Amino acid sequence: MTRKIEHKNMGKSNLGWLRSIFHFSFADYYNPDNMNFGVLRVINDDLVNAKTGFEMHPHRDMEIISYVVEGNLTHGDNMENKRSLSPGAVQYMSAGTGVMHSEHNLGESTSRFLQIWIVPDKKGYAPQYGDYQFDWHLRVDKWFKFVSSKEGDAPIQINQDANIYAIEVSAENIVDFQVGNKRQAYLVLIEGDALVNSHHLLTRDALESIEENLTIKAVQKSHILDIEMEKSK
């Protein structure tokens, strides 16, 4: 089973310095029928103006992944980490028992990144932080798995049975994505124009798949994120 979600129907926020699209209920956008997709709790597509950002604030008991699409993202936290990331980079933070952090765009142009929250398999983990500046070519016309569970083989390993993949599909190319028995996936078309099974997706649209394999044809060059996990019980 698949279901398309058009970005025009997602939650929206405009704070001036920050413009966001919310895939699931977040902040002032609340829809009791759209709280999560399995263990996937949050995907926020954030545009942050130059020289602005999120000041220090707390999180706990959440696996948080930030995927940088455009511009600069500078992280700081109470674990004495401070890092600046550019497009293609991925940041991971396991909030665990509690962490304070900030995220700023210190560059000269607007920054865009996807903020992804995954519910951990239990509460009370020790906080962790890490980041990777992955070579862009790792995801060109092939799936690049950069997040897995602790039992998996990805560079970033989280406290949950979930995997995250990225790909940039060249125009007119076709790729498949396997969604196995008792598994589900949430696909985000970050940039581009693509046909996914019977659905036509445009930039910022999304698609849910439950136990149904996906065939993706890029109408135009398409940058895609896919979050795969155990099927909701």
Score class of each variant (00 low, 15 high):
7 H>I: 08
12 K>E: 10
12 K>T: 09
15 L>N: 12
17 W>S: 08
20 S>R: 11
21 I>G: 00
23 H>I: 00
32 P>M: 01
34 N>E: 08
35 M>A: 06
36 N>H: 07
37 F>N: 00
38 G>I: 09
39 V>G: 03
40 L>E: 10
41 R>V: 09
42 V>R: 13
43 I>A: 09
44 N>Y: 14
46 D>E: 01
46 D>Q: 02
47 L>R: 11
48 V>I: 15
52 T>C: 07
55 E>V: 08
56 M>N: 13
56 M>D: 10
57 H>C: 00
57 H>M: 00
59 H>Y: 14
60 R>K: 08
64 I>N: 09
66 S>E: 10
68 V>I: 15
72 N>Y: 03
73 L>H: 01
73 L>Y: 11
75 H>F: 15
75 H>G: 06
76 G>I: 07
78 N>G: 12
80 E>G: 06
80 E>N: 15
82 K>T: 10
84 S>C: 11
85 L>C: 11
88 G>R: 13
88 G>F: 14
91 Q>L: 13
94 S>D: 05
95 A>K: 02
96 G>L: 05
102 S>K: 12
105 N>I: 02
117 W>Q: 07
120 P>I: 04
121 D>R: 10
122 K>L: 06
123 K>H: 14
126 A>V: 13
129 Y>G: 03
131 D>K: 04
132 Y>R: 11
132 Y>A: 03
133 Q>H: 15
135 D>R: 12
139 R>S: 06
139 R>T: 02
145 K>E: 14
146 F>K: 03
147 V>K: 10
148 S>C: 04
149 S>D: 11
150 K>M: 14
152 G>W: 13
154 A>Y: 09
155 P>R: 12
157 Q>I: 10
158 I>E: 08
160 Q>V: 05
162 A>Y: 08
163 N>Y: 14
163 N>F: 12
168 E>P: 05
170 S>Y: 04
173 N>G: 01
173 N>R: 13
173 N>H: 15
181 N>I: 12
183 R>F: 05
184 Q>V: 03
185 A>P: 07
194 A>T: 06
195 L>N: 00
198 S>E: 09
198 S>Q: 13
200 H>P: 09
202 L>Y: 05
203 T>E: 04
203 T>D: 02
206 A>K: 07
206 A>T: 10
208 E>F: 14
209 S>Y: 00
209 S>M: 00
211 E>A: 01
214 L>H: 01
217 K>G: 01
217 K>L: 08
222 S>M: 12
222 S>F: 13
226 D>T: 14
229 M>G: 00
229 M>N: 02
231 K>Y: 09
232 S>T: 12
